[in-house]
Design a protein around this nucleic acid. Structure first.
Lengths: 326, 326
DNA sequence: TTGAAAGCGCTAACAA
DNA sequence: TTGTTAGCGCTTTCAA
């Protein structure tokens, strides 16, 4: 492989001058610039970015940490992040934790070992006290999941509102025994959704029951399983507010299996407004999240972090989309 | 940040010895090893991997090129690749081409500039003659999409068989006017599927019609649009073999919209066996592809490439899954 | 506008 | 078993 020295030798100039041409430095005589460019082409020279990175102390690489990339919500998030990163010639490293603390730590280490310039966390497994240490090595940003006390740049949605308007909608539809089935136990996002759910119940004078409030549901299969559980309770609910369209879809599928008619006998509300929400029969009433936008925004904040490291909290809007499942 | 020199100074040893400890070199006195480890902990030292990479000429990073990560097929592929890479402490950089040749080239350049050790291509946009040049810089592997003439390691499925068994199934169900609606025009994968489709038609003495054979369909919306097109033909088909479950789902949705009854009046066959195939009403009869396995296998070949750079072609099995749409 | 020289942090051949 | 030394390929003062 040709190196900068080869180009220097070929042109009779110094490595400095060649470097200046590579980096579009202003003070290079036009003729020498052309000479260098010619030689680079001739030799098939490409700068070794490993060397550039070591010297500049910049990797032009961002890591995004997700539970699982195959989860449609996260793959959409990553899609929009990659598009922004790509435009700026940054690379995006995908890290899957499977919600494992150890794996999250392993990936947080990427910033300590200078393998990436920054990390975007879309889920949080370790306590903030643990994660905090890594902020000494470079920017860490939250996108989707969050921690109020962290004081790092955050792009999120008003999850309280999501829980509130979803539950309120179910109640207005006439359901009186509303269950909820959210994601991670022990996450601010889930806490806020459940808080919104409980607030809506309270406002309308409906009961909250522990056995109707489930967490750690993510997949279609989780939805199926939990619906069956709920139906077998002594007092089954007549509607459910879920934390994702996948869970809602699994519930609808299983309800049909059990002969429960949706929405007449049981109402199901999703979250995210994934393509599947429109395809299901009946369509899933859901809370639309601007997934693409939050991913885009988070990456933009990351890429402009050096010039303005504000610890801003961006909150994007979400809204209800009514379909047939309620 | 502490460097190896700091550790050397703190212990009174040389950088070499510290380096040996870092790299688990056999010949280091146990006591000195402990001494070094103690000092590393004390100083909060972590090796700078940029420097290690430059020196070792290894990035421990693999790039995977996909059209769009939000496409469920590709997100599953990437999920399994990342899992294997992660186990080996390799990073996975995700690159989205959107089927743009320029973007593909930009990402192929990662290997030229030594930013990654290898590239896995899951789709192909440029001609092999163009891509070939990049094999001089490191391993390039095909996974999913392929090019027979390339002579690079390839993990694929028997797409001819997929087209053949899918179409045969439709014919056996009694459909006689079978259309097809595949992915990229100008890809070996698509060519082979269509070839299988045509072979099945021919064997059963059914006609092939140009206007029944569509390509460049990927999304739910493509499915909807094309179904409408097909239905408005002078002689509409009575079934369709599609290249993905998303397209099939879009078609089923649109058919309902148009009042076309599935499977009685129109049969739809998907490809991939995504979760959505089971959720749709009716369920989508589809060709199951072992997505996880091909991703896993491709990454395994990549990671073992140095020790055994065989240009093997691995072909994994696919099979029909019958549901309600045919 | 250019070049010499130092050095980013690390590894590895060689010598001891 | 350890240390010395020479780089990996590049950028960036500093001086000219």
């Amino acid at each position: 492989m040709a190196t900068i020295k080869d180009v220097a030798d070929a042109t009779g100039l110094s490595r400095s001058t060649v470097s200046r041409v590579i980096n579009r430095h202003p003070y290079v005589a036009k003729e020498k610039k052309l000479l260098v460019e010619e030689a680079m082409k001739q030799l098939g020279y490409t700068p070794n970015s490993l060397a550039q990175r070591l010297r500049k102390r910049k990797t032009e690489t961002i890591a995004v940490i997700v539970p699982r990339i195959a989860n449609p919500f996260f793959s959409q998030l990553v899609e929009s992040m990659e598009m922004v990163a790509g435009e700026h010639n940054f690379q995006l490293v995908v890290c899957q934790t499977n919600n494992n603390k150890q794996r999250e730590l392993k990936y947080l280490n990427l910033i300590k070992t200078k393998q990436v310039d920054g990390i975007i966390l879309t889920s949080i497994d370790n306590d903030w006290e643990v994660i905090k240490e890594y902020t000494n090595y470079g920017p860490i940003i939250f996108c989707n999941e969050y921690d109020e006390n962290a004081g790092v740049p955050t792009v999120k949605l008003d999850q309280f509102k999501g829980g509130y308007i979803g539950t309120t909608h179910l109640i207005e539809r006439g359901y009186t025994k509303v269950a909820c089935c959210c994601g991670f136990f022990n996450s601010s996002l889930t806490d806020d959704r459940i808080h919104g759910y409980r607030t809506a119940l309270k406002e309308r004078g409906l009961p909250f029951r522990d056995e109707w409030c489930r967490t750690n549901a993510f997949s279609i299969d989780d939805g199926k399983r939990i619906l069956r559980d709920l139906m077998h309770l002594e007092e089954p609910p007549d509607a459910v507010f879920t934390g994702s369209d996948e869970v809602a879809a699994g519930m609808i599928k299983e309800a049909k299996q059990l002969g429960v008619v949706i929405p007449e006998e049981f109402g199901v509300l999703g979250f995210d407004d994934q393509p599947i929400a429109e395809l299901m029969e009946p369509g899933i009433t859901t809370i639309h999240q601007p997934v693409k936008e939050i991913g885009k925004k988070a990456m933009e904040i990351m890429l402009s972090y050096d010039s303005k490291p504000l610890n801003e909290i961006v909150e994007l809007p979400l809204h209800l989309v009514v379909r047939g499942s309620t």
